[in-house]
Nucleic acid binder design. Structure first.
Lengths: 148, 148
DNA sequence: TGTGAAAACGTCCTGGA
DNA sequence: TCCAGGACGTTTTCACA
């Protein structure tokens, strides 16, 4: 993972469908050399894959919320994960420091759908109570880059 | 935006570097037909682009936090955005309902780096106070899919 | 790591349902 | 209007130096 690898990752984060020749031109390497490095980065797990960036609004996921989840008793993270994974509206979830056991990032079609999801979340027997924060607008959303 | 478009988007979310022929095989269309639909989806803004999924740990961004930001007085969202955008450690930011003016998602190299970033955040003249929640582990992290 | 060749792919254009 | 098929230039992907 040297400086050239970092620049290759930057290129792919900017556009995952750019050709090896293009990337090579940007970093000063031939296309096969770039491919070998990309394969290695995938193998090492630095690159996990390539995905399309979609507009959630256009797909009918216009409403977002962050939910602090407080669990009953001592629930291991794997248990929380197992309960959240079947809910398609959960796009991300974290265990956190502080009073809450987890922060859950939800995406729903609208406020009504969000309410239904929150009810299902509260209905889980591991969940004691939840504190919801509805997202009004997204100010910023960008992928992490290799350079600081 | 019909059922075939949704499946094309799903394919691209799963692997943004798959070929048009591969996608065509999955959805029952020829490669040129898939390309035309992808071009249209890009044009409509449903697809915003294609990016590499990187492992933040591998890039030296091992520490994450969510920060509730409370501003002084009435600050418009565009002003908040403008102040957060220059900070590379801010990976996402939202205006939200409730007492806080914004929720900021931070990524830092380590706890010490995180502390520095929090200080810079608190140093902004628009910021009154902040409440930080450090992420201990990521339970789930997945892109939004077209189907419910 | 770069070079070169073969196979696969992207990207047009044209005909047909 | 939207799709399949074909042609041509490009890219991927290998072997070898």
């Amino acid at each position: 993972m040297d400086a050239i690898d970092q620049r290759i990752v930057s290129c792919l984060v900017t556009d995952a469908r750019s050709s090896y020749a293009e990337i090579g031109g940007a970093v000063g390497l031939s296309a096969p050399a770039v491919k070998r490095r990309v394969d290695k980065l995938l193998d090492m797990g630095v690159l996990r894959g390539f995905t399309a960036v979609v507009d959630p609004e256009a797909l009918g996921w216009g409403t977002e919320a962050f939910v602090e989840v407080h669990c009953r008793g001592n629930i291991p993270p794997s248990e929380i994960r197992g309960r959240l994974e079947p809910l398609p509206e959960v796009v991300a979830a974290y265990t956190v420091s502080g009073a809450a056991d987890a922060i859950v990032h939800l995406r729903a079609a609208n406020i009504h759908h969000l309410e239904t999801v929150l009810e299902r979340l509260r209905g889980l027997d591991i969940v004691d109570r939840t504190i919801s924060t509805v997202v009004l607008s997204t100010l910023l959303d960008r992928p992490p880059t290799p350079e600081h």
